[in-house]
Simulated assay, not measured.
Amino acid sequence: MNYISEKSKLGVNVSLGHFVVIKDDVTIGENCLIGNNVVIHEGTVIGNSVRIDDNTVIGKQPMRAVNSIFKDEKKLPSAKINDNCLIGAGVIIYCGCEIGKNTLVADLSTIRENVTIGEKTIIGRGVAVENFCKVGSNCKLETNVYLTAYSEVEDNVFIAPGVVTSNDNFAGRTKERFNHFKGVTVKKGGRIGAQATILPGKIIHEDGFVAAGSVVTKDVESAVIAVGNPAKVLRNVPENQLLKNQ
């Protein structure tokens, strides 16, 4: 049995699985496929030809622990998923989040509130995108990437599996840390190899490349390859690998 609020609006040719919950003021476009046990929270807007797989939650309100750094309890805007998106199984997308057209969010990923994701981007299996992040278009965040809060990823960025980013140089100690939170920035065309770690506030500039397993403690300049712990410049990115030559 499904629950479909009378205040929601579904377009033509929308297919619903079993045990679907669609709450008040949800709008779903045409030709959408909604899997089993999907929950779509109040006010969510879903475009045309969107697929949402089993056990996924869209538009979830955040919970706040007593010691959370996020103290703003104002009501967040509704989630929005634009046309032709594919949303996998077991995904949680919070309210205040917008997903651009033709984007894939793979199984078991979590996208927190106040996040925007561009068009034709791939958010891989098990990826976590935290609060106040911006991810551009034509990006790939592969399996188990962790994108810390307050980060920005520009267009055409590649982040390999298992990459970890951080935003807190104080590692949760002393109140001074509240004044210094800063996520990472990956500029257009930046690339990060598997299981690299990027420390708080660091910038990977245009076409910068961080090698697998590296620990980035300083900014990576444009079009160079940085390797090691701490990461240091090895050489320039080959000319045929630059984004402008693709």
Rank of each mutant, 00 (worst) to 15 (best):
G29K: 07
E30I: 04
N31D: 15
C32W: 01
L33E: 14
L33T: 13
I34Y: 08
I34E: 07
I34R: 05
G35A: 04
N36R: 12
N37G: 06
H41L: 13
E42P: 00
E42A: 05
G43N: 03
T44E: 07
V45F: 05
V45P: 00
I46L: 07
I46V: 07
V50N: 06
I52N: 13
I52D: 13
D53N: 14
D53S: 13
D54L: 03
D54W: 07
D54E: 14
N55C: 14
N55G: 11
V57K: 10
I58V: 14
I58M: 12
G59S: 11
K60L: 15
Q61N: 11
P62Q: 10
M63L: 14
M63G: 14
R64A: 13
R64I: 11
V66C: 00
S68V: 01
S68A: 13
I69T: 07
I69W: 05
F70G: 06
K71E: 13
K71F: 06
E73P: 01
K74I: 10
K74A: 14
K75H: 05
L76V: 03
P77T: 08
P77S: 05
S78H: 13
S78K: 04
S78L: 00
A79Y: 06
K80P: 00
I81F: 06
I81S: 06
I81H: 10
N82P: 00
D83E: 03
D83L: 01
C85I: 00
L86F: 14
I87S: 01
I87G: 04
I87Q: 06
A89W: 02
V91A: 06
I92R: 09
I93H: 02
Y94N: 02
C97F: 01
C97I: 02
C97M: 09
E98Y: 09
I99T: 09
G100M: 04
G100K: 02
K101F: 10
K101E: 15
N102L: 01
N102V: 00
N102K: 11
L104G: 07
L104A: 12
V105W: 09
V105N: 04
V105S: 05
A106G: 04
A106M: 15
A106K: 15
D107A: 15
D107W: 11
D107N: 15
L108T: 14
L108Y: 14
S109A: 15
T110G: 08
T110V: 14
I111Q: 03
I111R: 05
R112P: 05
R112W: 09
R112H: 11
R112T: 00
E113Y: 02
E113R: 02
N114F: 03
N114R: 13
V115L: 01
T116E: 11
T116H: 06
I117L: 06
I117R: 00
G118K: 02
G118S: 02
G118Q: 01
E119C: 03
E119T: 10
K120Y: 09
K120I: 00
T121Y: 02
I123F: 03
I123H: 05
I123L: 06
I123W: 04
